[in-house]
Amino acid sequence: MFPTPVASASAPTRAAYRIALPLSLLVWLLPLIGVMITSIRPASDLAMGNYFGVPSSFEPGNYLTVFRNTPMGLFILNSFKVTIPTVIGAVALSCLTGYALATYRFKTNLWLFFIFVAGNFVPFQILMIPVRDLTLKMGLYDTVTGLVLFHVAFQTGFCTLFMRNFIKALPSELIEAARVEGVSELRIFRYVVLPLMRPAIAALSVLIFTFIWNDFFWATVLVQGTHAMPVTGGIISLNGQWVAQWHLVSAGSVIAAMPPVIMFFLMQKHFIAGLTMGATKG
């Protein structure tokens, strides 16, 4: 193990490490801690210049104010309406494409795969005008559906890369044995491969959930009004209204950040497994 475990170090080193650990975390999360404390401060604290001291009172009411006076509830709902179908759509499509690219040999296989990979890395701006135009023409501009369709298509690139590599690493004997038995291709996929893909599906789902929840660019490009706006776009418009009302901005930010954070802590293992895929193997 590198570095040498502190457990085997001298007593002063161990003590120093014990102190350095929480201290460094405090510095690392300082901006975040500041915002969390601000979100429960009464407005009067800010007016009196008490930005960093102990809040004069605990004011969870800021959160209620955010929900009561702004369409925050609707924004959050919209984010779910965009995120959940996208996760389902992109994961489903990529189970199919990933399976095809991992198990069949045909001439264009590697090319198709690389197109998915390359497409996944292009800057959004090269897609912006045509995608906006297409969405307008389909009558889906300013709707949740328009946003979902684009996200599903774009995320299929990353998901295909992920699924294909995952399936390739499965033992090939399983599929070969099923083929010898004369099992149809569809049933091999359904009953042999799909059950083995569960960890990959879980990892991808949490990752895509976070990516899409946090998307801001496409929300501003494909949605205009409040009725379909996800929370990232919504909070920006609120930021304009709440000039200098940092307790509300903070509370709003905490609300917007919450769902992916909860998702992360619930599914931590899958999340990190998904994110670090490829970081260990050559």
């Binding site: 497409g119 292009v122 045509p130 135009d133 297409l134 298509a153 299929t156 295909t160 291709e185």
Partner: peptide, 25 residues
């Protein structure tokens, strides 16, 4: 034909929303 059956939905979506838009831009 199986690979194309599996590939078509994903490939079509990706073409329409990613590959063709690059050309159009």
């Amino acid at each position: 034909f199986a690979p194309w059956l599996f590939l078509t939905p994903g490939v079509v979506m990706f073409l329409v929303y990613v590959i063709v838009p690059i050309g159009r831009s």
